[in-house]
Design a protein around this nucleic acid. Structure first.
Length: 315
DNA sequence: TTCCAGCCAT
DNA sequence: ATGGCTGGAA
């Protein structure tokens, strides 16, 4: 169920292609998932901390690349209490060192662990609503953790689920409609297996390139796209190119500082771009702007000014 | 080029 | 409501 619209029934036009035989649709998906699915290590635990770590890492990062990072992370900080005791600089350095991207997610995770320790005495809340109060945890992640750790989540709606619902049941490309249909489709008290199953379907059989027959999609007999041959997916906004972007330089700064403890502007500049010159277009002023923003994101500490400015990863 | 289990700040 | 954040791989 959505955080914003907790008890909405389906509306006219939400799912013109949804079969009347809801129970058959539901059963087919769960049976398909249980018969065969990818093995990820976080699917073998019910520890909410371990699951939160996997979910935060998985946001915009391919799952195969998350596996080794997740294993290393939990070996280093096995519990939320261990993570709270860690220096934030070490958590950020770990994140950067494992090429997980979006370094501020490392700070969110560290902050969330602190919230669990101080506000919940070390034991995770179980409801999506409370989970969503944790730093870095939005509607998707709250329902994922509630589902996979406690079997107590509402239907998740991510890009996989949207694509599946849009194709299978002709749900219009509208967030509220996706929420209502996802809710209406999920059987009661099975959020753990259900949310795994529907995302598995979107990841394996109903990806950008559909593999309906190869993967034995359980919904072929009801699927609007399978019948019409129109596998259009909801638009995913395209990102501006990464090369030469501001994000690229933020990433390089974090990586440089995780290797060098602390650096002045003129030491750091040449490490992140070959054409750095203190008074040039990409000089101290430019670099200081990036550092200030990174500091506001809680990733860095910056002290001093002008040529004596020194940056390091935050404590 | 485009994609990938989103969330936060404004 | 919109922009910013990351980097490896297909």
């Amino acid at each position: 169920m959505s955080d914003t619209d907790s008890s909405s029934a389906l509306r006219e036009g939400d799912a013109p292609g949804l079969s009347a035989d809801l129970d058959a649709v539901r059963e087919a998906l769960v049976e398909w998932y249980e018969a065969d699915h990818r093995e990820f290590p976080w699917r073998r635990t019910e520890d909410p901390y371990a699951i939160l770590v996997s979910e935060v890492m998985s946001q915009q990062t391919q799952l195969d690349r998350v596996v080794p990072a997740w294993e290393d992370f939990l070996e280093r900080w096995p519990t939320a209490a261990d993570l709270v005791d860690a220096d934030r600089a070490d958590v950020v350095a770990f994140w950067s060192g494992h090429s997980l991207g979006y370094n501020n997610r490392a700070t969110y995770l560290h902050e969330a662990a602190e919230q669990v320790e101080t506000e919940y005495d070390g034991s995770f809340p179980e409801s999506p609503g409370e989970l969503q109060e944790l730093m870095g945890v939005g509607p998707y992640t709250a329902n994922a953790v509630a589902s996979f750790a406690f079997n107590a989540g509402d239907a998740v709606v991510d890009t996989n689920v949207k694509r599946v619902l849009h194709r299978a049941f002709a749900v219009p490309d509208d967030d509220a409609a996706f929420e209502r249909v996802a809710d209406g489709l999920m059987p009661a008290d099975v959020s753990r297996v259900w949310n795994n199953a529907i995302m598995e379907l979107g990841g394996v059989a109903c990806g950008k390139k559909p593999r309906c027959d190869e993967e034995g999609c359980p919904w072929r007999e009801w699927c609007h796209a399978y019948q019409t041959g129109d596998f259009t997916a909801p638009d995913v906004p395209t990102q501006p190119s990464f090369d030469g972007s501001r994000r690229q330089f933020r990433g390089r700064i974090v990586r440089a500082l995780s290797n060098h403890d602390e650096l002045t502007l003129d030491e750091l500049g040449p490490k992140i771009r070959v054409d750095y010159s203190p008074d040039g277009e990409h000089g101290r002023e430019w670099l200081e702007g990036l550092l200030t923003d990174l500091a506001e994101d809680g990733l860095l500490d910056v002290e001093g000014s002008d040529d004596r400015t020194v940056a390091k990863l935050s404590e």
